[in-house]
C-alpha cells in the first residue's frame, strides 16, 4: 500500500523543491541585511563543482565532498564580501552578477579540471550510494516493501527534508537573536545602526558569507542529486531564478522565499497537461503577482492574518493549546 504511494516522480519533484527552498533561503539571508546579491548562482557552482570533483577524483565520501564544497563557497563568500560590500544597491548587484559570470567562465575554460562546457558526468548519486552502502550491511529495501528506486528517492527526499527543516529552523532562530536584530537594523538604516554601535562590516560580511555557505551547500546537494553538472547550470539564468523566488514570495520573512521556491518549482510540473503553453501561464502568473503584490506574496501582514485565522479556528474547535513560541 505504502509502496504504491511512493512514486519516484513526486519524490523527484519534491527534492528539487527542497533544493530550491535552500537556494531561496540563501538569497533571503543576504537580503535581510538589505543587500541584493546575485552571486548565489556562482556560489552554488563552487559548491557543486568542488564536491563533484572531490568525490570523482579523490573518492571522498559524499558527505565529505558536500562539506568541502559548502565551506569553500563560504570562504569565497568572505573573500568576495569584504571588498564588494562597500558598494550598495544596484552597484552591488552588478558586481555580484559579474562575479557569478567569472565563476562560470572559469568552469568553461579550466578544461583539464572541469571538462569545460561538456560538464561532469557520473557524479556519485546520493541515494544510490546510500543504497549500496546499506546493502553491504545486509539491508534490502524489500524489507520495507519498496523497490530499489523507490527507496533511493525516498532516502534523498527524507535527507533533503531534514536538512531543509534544520536550515529554516536555524535562520528563524537567528532572526530572533542578536545577529538577526543587527541584520534588521542594518536593513532599515545603516547609519542609524552604526551609530547604535553595530559593527556594520562584520554583520554584512557575515550575512554575505552565510548566504554563500547555504548556496554552496544547495549546489553540492544539486550535484549529487542530478549526478551531472555543466557550467550552463550556474549561469545568469540561475541567478535570476533564485532572485525570483525571493521577489515572488516576498523577502520580508523567511517563509516568503520558501513559498516562492515551492510555488515556482511546482507550477511547471502542475501545468504539464498544457505542455507547450505552460511557460506562458507561468510567466503570466508571475506578472500578475508583480502587479498585484509588488512586495511579494508573503509578508508580515499575511503571516499575522494567517496566525489569527488558525488560532481562531482552533478555539472554535475547542482544541486551543496555546503555547509560547
Amino acid at each position: 500500500m505504502l509502496a504504491e504511494l511512493i512514486n519516484p516522480y513526486y519524490l523527484q519533484v519534491a527534492s528539487f523543491i527542497l533544493i530550491n527552498i535552500i537556494l531561496g533561503v540563501s538569497i533571503y539571508i543576504t537580503l535581510s541585511t538589505g543587500q541584493l546579491s546575485l552571486a548565489n548562482a556562482g556560489f552554488m557552482g563552487i559548491g557543486a563543482y568542488t564536491s563533484a570533483l572531490l568525490t570523482l577524483n579523490f573518492d571522498l565520501p559524499i558527505i565529505g565532498g558536500i562539506l568541502a564544497g559548502t565551506l569553500l563557497a563560504g570562504v569565497f563568500g568572505i573573500l568576495i564580501g569584504i571588498p564588494t560590500l562597500r558598494l550598495q544597491g544596484v552597484y552591488l548587484a552588478i558586481v555580484t552578477l559579474g562575479f557569478g559570470e567569472v565563476i562560470r567562465v572559469i568552469f568553461v575554460n579550466w578544461e583539464s579540471m572541469t571538462k569545460g562546457a561538456v560538464g561532469l558526468s557520473g557524479i556519485p548519486h546520493m541515494g544510490r550510494e546510500l543504497l549500496n552502502t546499506l546493502k553491504e550491511f545486509g539491508f534490502d529495501p524489500k524489507i520495507l516493501g519498496l523497490q530499489n528506486n523507490q527507496f533511493v528517492f525516498l532516502a534523498i527526499f527524507l535527507i533533503l527534508l531534514g536538512v531543509t527543516i534544520s536550515i529554516i529552523t536555524f535562520f528563524r532562530r537567528q532572526n530572533r537573536s542578536r545577529v538577526g536584530r543587527a541584520f534588521a537594523a542594518i536593513k532599515l538604516d545603516e547609519k542609524a545602526a552604526e551609530s547604535m554601535g553595530i559593527n556594520i562590516t562584520y554583520y554584512k560580511v557575515l550575512a554575505f558569507a552565510q548566504g554563500a555557505l547555504v548556496a554552496g551547500f544547495a549546489g553540492a546537494l544539486f550535484a549529487h542529486v542530478l549526478a551531472y553538472i555543466s557550467p550552463a547550470d550556474f549561469a545568469y539564468h540561475r541567478a535570476v531564478e533564485i532572485l525570483i523566488f525571493a521577489v515572488f514570495g516576498g523577502s520580508e520573512v523567511i517563509w516568503g522565499p520558501v513559498f516562492g521556491a515551492l510555488f515556482l518549482t511546482v507550477m511547471p510540473e502542475v501545468l504539464r497537461f498544457i505542455s507547450e503553453y505552460r511557460y506562458m501561464i507561468y510567466g503570466l502568473i508571475i506578472i500578475i503577482m508583480m502587479a498585484v503584490r509588488p512586495q511579494g506574496l508573503i509578508d508580515v501582514n499575511i503571516l499575522n492574518w494567517l496566525k489569527l485565522k488558525t488560532s481562531k479556528r482552533r478555539q472554535k474547535h475547542g482544541t486551543s493549546s496555546q503555547k509560547s513560541m
Binding site: Y10, V13, V270, R272, T310, M325
Partner: peptide, 27 residues
C-alpha cells in the same frame, strides 16, 4: 518553537498533497 515546526509540517504536507492531486489527473 514546536508549534512552528508543526505548522511547517502541515504546510509541506498540504503542498505535497497539492502536487500529488494536480499531477495525477491526466491518465
Amino acid at each position: 518553537m514546536r508549534k512552528q515546526l508543526k505548522k511547517f509540517a502541515q504546510f509541506t504536507a498540504l503542498s505535497s498533497l497539492l502536487v500529488l492531486s494536480a499531477c495525477g489527473g491526466n491518465q
